[in-house]
Simulated assay, not measured.
Amino acid sequence: MPDDHVYGVRLFVPGTAATPAQWQDSLGRSGLTLDGGALTSPDLGFRALSEWVANDGSFGQAFGYGTMTPQEQYAVDAAGSALLLDLPVYLGAPVATLIAALGEAGALGVRLEQSKLGWPVTRWVRALEGGDPWALYRCAVVVLQGEGGSRSCGMHVFGLPDARVEAAPVEADRLLGELNVYQLAEDPVLVTGDTFRPDLDTPRRRLERWPDDGYPPDHPCHNPFGTWRLGGEGGTADPRGDLRPVFIPPLVVLLTAAEDRAGRPLRRDEVERVTNEGACMMMAHADAQHLERGRGYADLEPELAWDQWQVLRGFRD
Rank of each mutant, 00 (worst) to 15 (best):
A163W: 10
L251G: 07
G231C: 03
Y215I: 04
N180L: 14
D86V: 08
E178D: 15
T122A: 12
N55W: 08
A100F: 02
F46P: 06
Q73I: 07
H222C: 12
H219P: 03
L207V: 06
A100S: 06
G109E: 00
Q73D: 07
P250I: 07
T256Y: 11
L44M: 03
H156M: 10
G60M: 04
P239Y: 04
R138K: 14
G15M: 04
W23H: 01
G296C: 09
W52K: 00
N223L: 07
Y137R: 10
L144R: 09
H219F: 12
D35I: 05
D238K: 10
Y137H: 12
G66K: 04
G177H: 05
L83D: 01
L304K: 13
L34N: 01
L184P: 02
L87S: 00
A140P: 00
A135R: 06
P220A: 10
P211G: 06
D287W: 07
D187R: 15
L98W: 00
T192S: 13
A168D: 15
A75G: 03
G232C: 06
A101W: 00
H156T: 04
G154T: 00
Q71E: 13
G66E: 01
D201N: 14
T40D: 08
Q22N: 02
P188E: 03
D201H: 14
D3W: 15
A167S: 09
V125T: 03
A93H: 14
A279I: 14
A257T: 09
E104C: 05
D86K: 14
D242S: 13
D162K: 07
L312P: 03
A140H: 02
D260S: 12
Y65D: 13
G193C: 05
A107H: 04
